[in-house]
Computed example of a mutant assay.
Amino acid sequence: MTVLLRDATVADHDAIVALNAAEVRHTSPMDGARLRELDALAGCHRVAIVDGEVAAFLLAMPDHVAYRNDNYAWFAARYERFCYIDRVVVGAHRQGRRLGSRLYEDLFAWARARAIPRVACEFNLVPPNEPSRAFHARHGFAEVGRQWLGGKQVSMQVAAVGRDQGAGIDDSSTKTAGTSHG
């Protein structure tokens, strides 16, 4: 299986929206208009191409963008420099082939090249998302807090970016105000 990772293009948008819709129970809804908004804010928007088709994608926002999202805001209140994974989706028929891991490795390389010290994300605790918990643990993420949003409780996760990606959390640029794990 040959996998090509590249920046997402407008020509990929229909496939990205379809992948997201198929996995919406694990992420949030996204139509074409919302994808255009997210794409405009994203620092890193990558796709994995397998057999000529978009098989997976990742959208990540750098710090200090005008992104209206409660989870992003939670990290922005606590960390000066970070990159927030808005979503990563792998098509059901392509799961188990390391596409998510390849996209994460690519994101960490992107962050490292820009001296971004940490990558942040969240996953559901209520209702539980065990596959996401295990995936993020394998990639060096650790819980730094929790929050309730509507009927969901999420685990706020951070992984350090460095030569040994995921080797612990470097909080050297954590904001001093608001370091509680809300």
Rank of each mutant, 00 (worst) to 15 (best):
A92R: 15
H26F: 11
A60Y: 02
W74N: 10
D51W: 00
H139W: 08
S173I: 04
D106S: 11
G166S: 07
H93E: 15
R138M: 00
A22E: 12
L99P: 02
S101H: 12
L19G: 05
D14N: 09
A115E: 15
D70A: 15
A160H: 07
Y72K: 11
L19S: 06
F123M: 14
L19A: 09
V144Y: 06
A22M: 02
E80Y: 01
L99Y: 05
G178M: 06
E23Q: 14
R46E: 08
L58P: 04
L38F: 12
Q157I: 01
H13N: 14
H26D: 06
R102H: 10
A109I: 01
A73G: 12
R36N: 15
P29L: 11
R112H: 14
I85P: 00
C44V: 06
V126R: 12
L38K: 08
A56M: 04
P62W: 04
G178W: 01
E122H: 05
F82S: 05
N71A: 12
D164M: 08
F123Q: 10
F82R: 07
D14I: 02
I16A: 04
L38Q: 12
V65F: 05
Y79N: 06
W148S: 13
E37R: 14
G140Y: 01
G96Q: 03
G43Q: 08
G162A: 03
F141P: 02
F141A: 06
G168A: 11
S180L: 10
H13T: 08
D39P: 00
I169D: 03
R87Q: 12
A92S: 14
G168K: 09
R133M: 09
F135G: 04
S172E: 09
A109G: 14
V154M: 12
Y67E: 07
V119S: 10
Q95T: 13
A177K: 08
Y79W: 15
A55D: 08
D171I: 03
G151D: 15
M156R: 07
Q153C: 15
C44L: 01
D170T: 02
F75T: 05
A33R: 11
A48Y: 03
G168S: 12
E80A: 13
Q165V: 10
L125P: 01
Y79R: 14
R25Q: 14
D51L: 02
W148H: 11
A177L: 15
A56P: 05
H136C: 02
N124Q: 12
R138A: 10
A55E: 07
C44T: 08
L99M: 03
D12Y: 06
L99C: 07
G166W: 06
P29R: 15
K175D: 03
M1N: 01
C121V: 13
G32I: 04
H181N: 10
A113W: 02
D171R: 12
A111L: 02
W74E: 06
W74S: 05
I169P: 03
L149Y: 11
C44Y: 14
R163P: 11
G162Y: 00
H136Q: 04
A8R: 10
L38Y: 14
A33I: 07
A66N: 13
P117G: 07
V144N: 01
R6M: 10
T174D: 12
L99T: 05
N129V: 00
A77R: 13
T174H: 12
R6C: 05
V89N: 08
R97G: 08
T179L: 11
R94I: 02
G140V: 05
A137M: 00
L41Q: 07
F141E: 00
E23A: 14
